[in-house]
Amino acid sequence: MRNISDVIEQYLKQVIEKNEQALIEVKRSELANRFDCVPSQINYVIRTRFTEEKGYVVESKRGGGGYIRIIKIEFDHRGDLYDQLIEMIGVSLPQQAAENIILRLLEEEAVTDREAKLMKSVIDREVLTIPLPARDQFRARLMTAMIRTLKYKMSNE
């Protein structure tokens, strides 16, 4: 059985998919009532499942008329996706952020399931057995190199 966080995430993604503008505005309290949970559960889902690495921008306005706006980042050209990911990676990349980027590449159909598994195996902390912060810096260089290779492959097709 799926947990409540998975259910809320699926619901929000379905609503975004149905919306022509790839964005939605929701009220935290209304979502909490809909799923019979506390508003902090909604915060958790949005904070962990709708991140920039996963292709979302979240805006929030607090107060009585407050809302949460979730925007799905879409690109006309796959090269723009690769450029945005490379810029986002920077010089240091924790494992969870790297896994989120790989998941996004998979969801955007920029990599196959097999390629995603290979990428995940390379960036895993059990493979990169060097101390922090060098491990996160090395992971960033590996991810950048893999994404540049994907971009290069795409431009030659």
Score class of each variant (00 low, 15 high):
Ser92Pro: 07
Gln84Met: 04
Ile89Asp: 00
Gly90Glu: 13
Cys37Ala: 14
Met88Pro: 00
Gln137Val: 12
Arg125Gly: 01
Glu74Ala: 11
Leu81Cys: 06
Asn19Val: 06
Gly90Phe: 07
Arg135Gly: 11
Asp6Gln: 08
Glu109Phe: 05
Leu132Tyr: 14
Lys153Leu: 02
Ile8Ser: 11
Gln96Leu: 00
Gly65Met: 02
Gly79Phe: 11
Asn43Glu: 11
Leu23Gln: 15
Lys120Trp: 00
Ser60His: 08
Gly55Ile: 01
Ser155Pro: 00
Gln10Ser: 15
Met1Asn: 14
Asn33Ala: 09
Gly55Met: 01
Ile73Lys: 12
Ser155Val: 00
Cys37Ser: 13
Arg114Thr: 15
Asp6Phe: 04
Ser92Ile: 02
Val122Glu: 10
Val127Thr: 09
Ser40Pro: 01
Ala116Glu: 06
Met146Gln: 08
Tyr67Val: 08
Ala22Asp: 04
Glu17Arg: 15
Arg141Pro: 07
Arg139Asp: 04
Ile70Lys: 00
Lys27Phe: 09
Ile102Leu: 08
Glu99Gln: 12
Ser155Thr: 01
Gly55Glu: 01
Ser155Gln: 03
Ser60Phe: 13
Asn3Met: 06
Asp36Leu: 12
Leu31Asp: 14
Thr51Glu: 06
Arg47Pro: 08
Asn19Phe: 02
Tyr44Asp: 03
Leu118Phe: 04
Thr149Pro: 15
Asp80Pro: 02
Glu52Thr: 10
Leu12Asp: 13
Arg141Ala: 12
Ala116Lys: 14
Glu107Ala: 10
Gly65Thr: 08
Val58Asn: 03
Arg34Tyr: 12
Pro94Glu: 07
Pro131Arg: 04
Ser5Pro: 04
Ala32Thr: 11
Ala97Gln: 15
Val26Glu: 08
Ile73Tyr: 15
Tyr56Thr: 00
Gln95Ala: 10
Asn43Ser: 14
Asp80Arg: 14
Leu105Asn: 09
Leu31Glu: 13
Val38Pro: 09
Ile68Lys: 02
Val111Lys: 00
Val91Tyr: 07
Ala145Asn: 10
Gly66Val: 08
Leu142Gln: 05
Pro131His: 02
